[in-house]
Amino acid sequence: MKGRNMTRWRDPAKDPRQEPKSNLITAEGAARLRGILDHLSRVKRPQISAKVGEAAAQGDRSENADYTYNKKELNRVIARIRYLTKRLDELQVVDRLPANTQKIFFGAFVSLEDEEGETLSLRIVGHDETDTQKRWISIDAPMAKALLGKEVGEDITVLTPNGETFYTVTAIDYAPNSN
């Protein structure tokens, strides 16, 4: 089992990468993934294929860096297309509001206040659409799991690298332009 792709051995029972990820995604997230797939399939792949063809026409491929680079790039794009196609088939798009919008569920924009009075705004989204800059967290994250089903005014405790952190839910909204 030797090879260039070998990495260190990890116990599958303790490896966080082996944990099952939820297959939920918002309608906006699914549209974004479809847009990426469309761009890769219709624009990027044909461009790189043309570059590979031009580089191959130059002769000896073993010493042709342009050919080697573009071939690797083409393989990377094809792998990404294959992954996105498979992933989009697995995903379940959540495109409607929950029955009780007073509680935190998938897709909610949540405002929290910590013990020092500082506010934290975040959104609970699917694994494929997390974004740290927008503060969109995965529904599989410990913070999201602690928030699910809570209402305004309820307290939660989240275990962080700095120890336990306490938050109070101050607002819940499902409109995308609210936060």
Rank of each mutant, 00 (worst) to 15 (best):
residue 61 R to M: 14
residue 156 I to D: 02
residue 88 L to D: 00
residue 41 S to M: 03
residue 52 V to Q: 04
residue 113 E to L: 02
residue 169 V to W: 02
residue 154 E to K: 11
residue 159 L to H: 11
residue 52 V to F: 11
residue 25 I to L: 09
residue 159 L to D: 08
residue 16 P to C: 10
residue 42 R to Y: 03
residue 116 E to Q: 14
residue 35 G to D: 14
residue 89 D to H: 06
residue 158 V to R: 05
residue 167 Y to T: 01
residue 158 V to Y: 10
residue 161 P to F: 01
residue 13 A to V: 11
residue 60 D to A: 12
residue 64 N to Y: 10
residue 1 M to N: 07
residue 70 N to V: 05
residue 130 T to V: 15
residue 59 G to V: 09
residue 13 A to W: 07
residue 9 W to T: 03
residue 130 T to I: 15
residue 169 V to A: 02
residue 177 N to F: 11
residue 140 D to R: 06
residue 162 N to I: 01
residue 100 N to A: 12
residue 156 I to V: 15
residue 77 V to Y: 05
residue 5 N to S: 08
residue 115 E to F: 03
residue 19 E to P: 00
residue 164 E to C: 00
residue 85 T to S: 15
residue 108 A to R: 01
residue 155 D to P: 02
residue 118 E to P: 00
residue 146 A to L: 11
residue 133 Q to T: 12
residue 151 E to M: 05
residue 126 G to V: 08
residue 87 R to H: 05
residue 3 G to N: 09
residue 166 F to N: 09
residue 98 P to I: 04
residue 110 V to C: 09
residue 119 T to V: 07
residue 149 G to F: 09
residue 47 Q to K: 06
residue 9 W to F: 14
residue 92 Q to S: 11
residue 159 L to C: 00
residue 122 L to T: 09
residue 56 A to P: 02
residue 108 A to Q: 03
residue 59 G to R: 12
residue 67 Y to Q: 03
residue 30 A to R: 03
residue 15 D to K: 10
residue 120 L to H: 13
residue 149 G to C: 07
residue 56 A to R: 14
residue 31 A to E: 15
residue 136 W to Y: 15
residue 167 Y to Q: 01
residue 177 N to K: 13
residue 167 Y to H: 04
residue 67 Y to S: 04
residue 136 W to V: 02
residue 142 P to R: 12
residue 114 D to L: 10
residue 139 I to L: 09
residue 81 I to Y: 06
residue 137 I to S: 04
residue 179 N to A: 10
residue 114 D to V: 08
residue 59 G to D: 08
residue 158 V to W: 10
residue 117 G to M: 03
residue 3 G to I: 05
residue 19 E to D: 07
residue 47 Q to E: 15
residue 103 K to V: 13
residue 105 F to P: 00
residue 154 E to N: 06
residue 43 V to D: 13
residue 134 K to Q: 13
residue 166 F to A: 10
residue 74 L to E: 12
residue 155 D to H: 04
residue 124 I to M: 06
residue 26 T to S: 15
residue 49 S to G: 05
residue 17 R to H: 13
residue 129 E to C: 08
residue 6 M to N: 09
residue 95 D to W: 07
residue 151 E to T: 07
residue 35 G to H: 10
residue 50 A to T: 12
residue 149 G to I: 03
residue 81 I to A: 01
residue 68 T to L: 15
residue 52 V to P: 00
residue 151 E to G: 06
residue 82 R to Q: 14
residue 91 L to M: 07
residue 136 W to I: 00
residue 171 A to R: 12
residue 141 A to T: 02
residue 163 G to E: 11
residue 151 E to R: 13
residue 177 N to L: 12
residue 129 E to P: 04
residue 141 A to Y: 04
residue 158 V to K: 05
residue 70 N to K: 03
residue 120 L to Q: 07
residue 15 D to E: 14
residue 179 N to W: 01
residue 137 I to W: 03
residue 140 D to K: 05
residue 176 P to R: 09
residue 158 V to M: 06
residue 87 R to Y: 02
residue 46 P to I: 03
residue 62 S to N: 13
residue 145 K to R: 15
residue 7 T to Y: 13
residue 154 E to I: 04
residue 152 V to F: 04
residue 157 T to H: 07
residue 113 E to F: 03
